[in-house]
């Protein structure tokens, strides 16, 4: 009797697994999103509790501290306004020059803010969940960034949440370029790839850099614009160290990411 129960239970579970693993990508993604949707109330509740705790924490901050912070923010706001005015002038001038040369006009970025609600529970992927989806005009492969730099790209999109593949995940490889710190000229190009040598989640490898390129620690690494996903000029990080590979044919560099992926709370999705 027990053996029969064993066989039935095992057979049923194996059948379910086989069916699920052999499903085409889209239906599997839909089932995944539907199952993940069960957790949304819990994520929402946890977010509300966190927000409430923050509010309680804010309510006990002394008035003098708040006034100091307000003063600092006012100053910062004033500085940013001045910078924006200069940038608008430069943007206008840039547009006129591009028009004169017959180049395509640059479109200003449209950004959608999103809150990080969860991370991949498995240790062998670097993905996270954000609280915006197709209802907010999010589509797969849109770049995700913060004010500090690039975070990753959108992977799967549900109606009101999406998963983001972060830099350092095996499914997030893309071309990048190294800029010289002084004159901002492009020193070399390579591929950003997950590193196989450290536990530090903030380090990635820049591989397939042509040998003889003048790579130095401290140089900035930016998106190259060669890929169809990331626009040119978003900062990725800085070079930590360089090593030669394939008998000097190629160089490899370790890159410290500009964004602290461990402490992400709010990100921006670049709508294209």
């Amino acid at each position: 009797m027990l053996k029969r129960q064993y066989s039935i239970a095992t057979g049923l579970v194996l059948l379910i697994v086989l069916v699920l693993l052999n499903l085409p990508e889209q239906p599997a993604a839909r089932i995944k999103l539907a199952l993940g949707g069960l957790f949304l109330p819990l994520f929402g509740m946890a977010g509300s509790v966190q927000h409430l705790a923050q509010q309680v924490g804010n309510s006990v901050v002394p008035r003098s501290t708040l006034l100091t912070q307000l003063d600092q923010l006012r100053k910062e706001n004033e500085e940013l306004r001045q910078k924006l005015m200069q940038a608008q002038d430069a943007f206008r001038e840039n547009g006129q020059l591009r028009q004169a040369l017959g180049w395509q006009r640059r479109v200003p970025w449209a950004l959608q803010p999103a809150r990080v609600i969860g991370q991949d529970p498995a240790n062998w992927w670097r993905t996270m969940l954000i609280d915006v989806g197709s209802r907010d005009r999010i589509r797969p492969n849109m770049p995700v960034l913060t004010a500090e730099g690039l975070v990753g790209r959108i992977d799967k999109v549900g109606p009101d949440r999406s998963s983001v593949v972060m830099i350092g995940d095996p499914n997030c490889r893309f071309s990048a370029q190294v800029q010289d710190a002084r004159d901002k000229s492009v020193v070399a190009k390579g591929i950003i790839s997950p590193t196989a040598s450290t536990l530090d989640r903030l380090l990635v490898d820049l591989i397939f850099v042509p040998g003889g390129s003048l790579l130095k620690p401290g140089q900035s690494v930016m998106t190259g614009g060669d890929s169809m996903i990331f626009p040119k000029g978003i900062i990725i990080g800085h070079i930590v160290d360089v090593r030669t590979n394939d008998y000097g044919l190629n160089l490899e560099a370790r890159v410290k990411l500009a964004v602290n992926l461990n402490r992400l709370e709010l990100v921006w999705v670049l709508l294209q």
Partner: peptide
């Protein structure tokens, strides 16, 4: 299935080891 739904794992892959 719940674990895989929040992860980048293919759906159903975690079921087998647990079983």
């Amino acid at each position: 299935l719940w674990f895989d739904s929040l992860s980048a794992n293919p759906l159903g892959i975690t079921v087998l080891p647990l079983l």
